[in-house]
Design a protein around this nucleic acid. Sequence first.
DNA 1: GCGGTTTCTGGGAGCGTTCACAGAGCGTTC
DNA 2: GAACGCTCTGTGAACGCTCCCAGAAACCGC
Lengths: 333, 333
Amino acid sequence: MRARRATINDVADAAGLSRGTVSRVVNGEKYVSAEARTAVEAAIAQVGYVRNTAARNLVTQESRAIGLIIHEPHSLLFEDPNIGSILLGANEALSKADYQLVTLIIDSDRDSHRVADHLRGGLIDGAVIVSARASDPIAAAVADIGLPAAFVGHPDGTPDLPYAAIDNVEAARAITSRLLGTGRRRVGMIASALDRDSGQDRLAGFRAAMGERYDPRLVVEYPLYTYAAGFEGMQKLLRRDPSIDGVFAASDAVAAGAMTALQEAGRRVPEDVGIVGFDDSSWALRCRPQLSTVRQPAGLLGTTAAELVLAQLMGLPSSPRVLETVVMWRGSA
Amino acid sequence: MRARRATINDVADAAGLSRGTVSRVVNGEKYVSAEARTAVEAAIAQVGYVRNTAARNLVTQESRAIGLIIHEPHSLLFEDPNIGSILLGANEALSKADYQLVTLIIDSDRDSHRVADHLRGGLIDGAVIVSARASDPIAAAVADIGLPAAFVGHPDGTPDLPYAAIDNVEAARAITSRLLGTGRRRVGMIASALDRDSGQDRLAGFRAAMGERYDPRLVVEYPLYTYAAGFEGMQKLLRRDPSIDGVFAASDAVAAGAMTALQEAGRRVPEDVGIVGFDDSSWALRCRPQLSTVRQPAGLLGTTAAELVLAQLMGLPSSPRVLETVVMWRGSA
DNA sequence: GCGGTTTCTGGGAGCGTTCACAGAGCGTTC
DNA sequence: GAACGCTCTGTGAACGCTCCCAGAAACCGC
């Protein structure tokens, strides 16, 4: 059993002053004499006082903490370097504003409910929601209690909340066009994560760029943005059409898997088959040849979403923000 | 401005019952009549009541939340898949015990202090600390207030707290011996993260296995477990001694970088140079040839550390736990 | 010396809960 | 029908803090 923690009253007694004065010192307010201040500081050190945040939150009705909710299947937390960047980006913005970032991960239905309770309970002043699916109960909980929040990405069917996102359709269209510009005749796609806006939009962009040349037989689909999906998907495409000479992979991890499959099948990249990815994550520079891909500003997405939440907290209007992407052209196509 | 949230008193009024009865219903206690229960439930739905957790925490003196503190430099959060596994492992154990996992990341000195305040403030009942360095102010804060805690890994110089770890010295010794067993004559090491116990211990294990054959000129050091460190380190080793025929890389990411450097230099793996890594992370299976490495049970480390904290919370004794590692022998050596 | 302003301190009230206790109602037992 | 136990409900007190108001003390200008 831990010893009882010292309270503000213990400090007041030790300093021979009142609760109110101690509170003023702790919060750095005006109207405290120099001698009272030093007496209180000495007393704090003496009794080992640390302020009880729960009590403080109760009366101030705020927690100065923002939740970042990650709802990803197991594997993605390892494979997708974007999540880490988003996390750090958000942390940076919140840290500057002196808010604590609290990351909550959802890995089961049980988690889902507990996290919803956590949000509702007032332990958090706002939330950044990463990779929610349309059916997400968290999005509902947030809307339910009117918690200031913002999405990273923009799943449809979710409540009318601000978001920070990129234009996946346009970016996918742009890089596919570029790939076509290298003279490829049979171009396929390894699509992934069609249960999410990003997956759907990248496929739509591919389709738009292909126009007449679009051939559904050259599109394979996988549930997750993984290396394994790319590896298997490429093998399947090669079987379906050995003359394939270009591939758009839905993410860099997928592209890396596809590249390995191609090289094992004896195809040269980019001479025989050109390949492009999406994200410009750390995968891109690790491939040989290095990957041509779309740079997605993951850190900035996190920062921007955090700022959208902070704006709401300050009563400012906050509207969706679409960030720029850039095609990074390297050796793989 | 958000509308005032409904309190337990609003529910009591709406139901025509007292605070106490409402509290009993909300907490699922005995001694509530069926009709009172339904009346309260209707009233809760009517006024949209959700319990204020800060108030509850204040009186119960617990939060049912456990912090997981990650203190990593930027790059590692992306490159090191272990962190994700540890996170999910810890979440699983805590989820079962109906505790909320709250991840706090430290990315600057400013964060460091805010996180320490968060711990001290009573918002958390315990903490799992990942990859602390000896100088970590968090470790001090934890010891300071006697918060139940456990480390993943075991930095020395830290307070006398329980930990979940692997025996890095023994594991490094084992895989180096195995590498030597394939008949290699000039074996080097790309060491990393010597500011941490894992980095130091892996080097010590290598040294132990090499015995007489240990040559400090064949050891290069890098600050972080990264792909880039492996790439550069291997190039440096090749320059120092072109006859090198074996390498122990301090992690799989490092090994992957080293393998790329070797292949670009025209060396065959494993024929010309054998290479072994550490972690058995997702990197290992992606390399061609696949990596021989030490399997580290990252998820289990997280689970175990979480259980150590839970045990302390229940007043049970909890002592350090060292988990088993296994050498995974594949194609790279 | 007096009214007015500024600086500083103390303490009551209240934040939204849970907890412990008192007491009412009812059925069972001797 | 008194004594006992069980079920159910209401209420005061407490958790540790901030906020606000009242009032004391100090300083100012005329």
